[in-house]
């Protein structure tokens, strides 16, 4: 089996490494496919469906999520066919009805000409979270802590700490905050304290013994120190002063 395949994306031929996804290959070649639940550092999940493309293999054409679909020899991909656009528009319509006041969603929807949800106004909601699970996956796969998880199912599904109370395992690293595509996670560093409101946690920040700035949560530094087996006091000085 050869290590590379040739596929067609939007009429142009590309060579790609076997095992890569359609989204990766498209992105590598400067073709923009919109995504929300995707992050290169985290396993693809396929929840937001925004990256849908139309693929043809033999006589069969269908809609697939490009973040998960592996490239294949002879595959024909259309990233912006009528059918793709129609589906993407409906997705944004649905997301806008859920997050009717969220700027990220509003802007993305507007890009596709969706300026207001197709559903009756009394049903519009004002969420910021689209339940893409990036925060949960980052906490599990990148940080290795799993302080939060997706709880409940269906329309009640949401990322949350266990028992909907303070996330006792959280180390305050803020990875969830950085990966969230819709700024649904509210985090603030103030007066030497970091608060992540969504998980009901607060952390004392470590003050650099040299320059005096607060540079990271103590709990996070302690977690890293133990994991990497570093000496006590290793993080007394911030990276800038080291």
């Amino acid at each position: 089996m050869s290590e590379t395949v040739t596929l067609t994306i939007d009429g142009k031929k590309y060579t790609a490494e076997r095992g890569r996804t359609v989204l990766q290959v498209a992105t590598d070649n400067g073709i923009r496919i919109p995504t929300l639940c995707h992050n290169e550092a985290i396993e693809p999940y396929g929840a937001c469906r925004l990256c849908v493309v139309e693929v043809t293999r033999g006589s069969r054409t269908r809609i697939v999520t490009s973040c998960l679909y592996p490239v294949e020899e002879g595959l024909i991909v259309q990233t912006a066919s009528d059918r793709v656009i129609r589906n993407r528009k409906m997705l944004l319509d649905l997301l806008l009805a859920r997050c009717s006041e969220n700027e990220v969603i509003k802007n993305l929807a507007a890009e596709y000409g969706v300026t207001q949800p197709s559903f009756r106004q009394e049903y519009w909601e004002k969420n910021d979270c689209i339940v893409c699970g990036l925060c949960v996956r980052a906490c599990e796969q990148v940080v290795g802590v799993s302080a939060i998880s997706l709880v409940n199912r269906g329309i009640s599904k949401e990322p949350a700490p266990p028992f909907l109370e303070k996330a006792t395992d959280c180390i305050g690293c803020g990875s969830c905050y950085y990966v969230c595509p819709t700024h649904a996670i509210k985090m603030e560093d103030k007066n030497g304290v970091r608060r992540i409101h969504n998980w009901k946690v607060e952390f004392k920040l470590k003050k650099c013994s040299k320059c005096g700035i607060y540079w990271a949560p103590e709990a996070q530094l302690e977690y890293i120190r133990r994991k990497a087996d570093l000496p006590v006091g290793f993080f007394d000085i911030c990276p800038n002063c080291r």
């Binding site: 802590v145 799993s146 302080a147 939060i148 998880s149 997706l150 709880v151 409940n152 199912r153 700490p161 266990p162 028992f163 996330a167 006792t168 395992d169």
Partner: peptide, 12 residues
């Protein structure tokens, strides 16, 4: 198993 994952199962 992290508490969060057990809670996830219990509510799913």
């Amino acid at each position: 198993i992290p508490q969060s994952q057990i809670y996830s199962m219990a509510t799913f």
